[in-house]
Amino acid sequence: MKFCLVVDDSRVVRKVARRIVEGLGFSCDEAEDGQKAYDACQGTMPDVILLDWNMPVMSGIEFLEKLREMDNGSGPKVIFCTTENDLGHIQRAMNSGADEYIMKPFDSEIIESKFVQVGLMEQAAE
């Protein structure tokens, strides 16, 4: 089973995201900021990370930059999932090694669509 780490400082968002990714057949863990996510990745490297931008302690973009420098840090697919919805943020995220970008609010269809695009799962048959 593929493993997803949901990183967001909102408990509600983490819960919603967890329900969606588990519904897509992934196992799931949560982290409430970039530092906790970094610690988690030193234990088990996830297959995919859903990453908020603005969080206390360590932001999503700082975490991403540190992650990509880790051994095996290029492995996980990183999908930003944030209310930051301007071109500048999107481009900065992509330049820092994000694989995809979701502008909140999201729903299960959007997450599934992005998981398919980064090659984590097959397109569901019609």
């Binding site: 999107i90 995809e100 959007i110 669509s113």
Partner: peptide, 23 residues
Amino acid sequence: SQFEVQRGLPIQLLTKYFEQNNE
């Protein structure tokens, strides 16, 4: 809308072929 462009459209294609107009 933001919802419509996130269904099926990879982010690279969004930034390449679209212009942002508020939401």
